[in-house]
């Protein structure tokens, strides 16, 4: 028995980088084992999904998703402020012609 006791709480963050689909996840924890930062901990109960305990520490590398054997069981999403915009190329039109040299 160690003289120190360990406990753990979720460290709150304004972002939610990861989402699990419990209907697809088989709880194999390959995602947990792939993460070099240990953002995740194994499910608390058998049959559950891994727990995102340190969401703010995610560096958005995608290793957890790459290693998951169940397509769609885990999803990674950049915070809204980091979602880059894209547009139809055809929508870019010169509205004030004759301006370019």
């Amino acid at each position: 028995m160690s003289e120190y006791r360990y406990t753990v709480e979720v460290t709150a963050s304004s972002v939610s980088p990861l989402a699990f689909d419990p209907s697809r996840c088989i709880g194999c924890c390959r995602c947990v084992e792939a993460c070099q930062i240990d953002v995740l901990l194994p499910p608390q109960r058998k049959g559950g999904v891994p727990r995102v305990v340190w969401p703010g520490e995610c560096w958005y590398c995608g290793a957890c998703v790459m290693e998951c054997p169940q397509k769609g069981a885990i999803r990674l999403r950049h915070p809204l402020m980091n979602q880059a915009r894209f547009v139809e190329r055809a929508s870019l039109r010169d509205e004030a012609p004759g301006k370019l040299p």
Partner: peptide
């Protein structure tokens, strides 16, 4: 960035 420490640098947080 205390809220997003994982995003504040180019390399892995660790």
């Amino acid at each position: 960035h205390s809220d997003l420490p994982g995003l504040c640098e180019f390399r892995p947080l660790s």
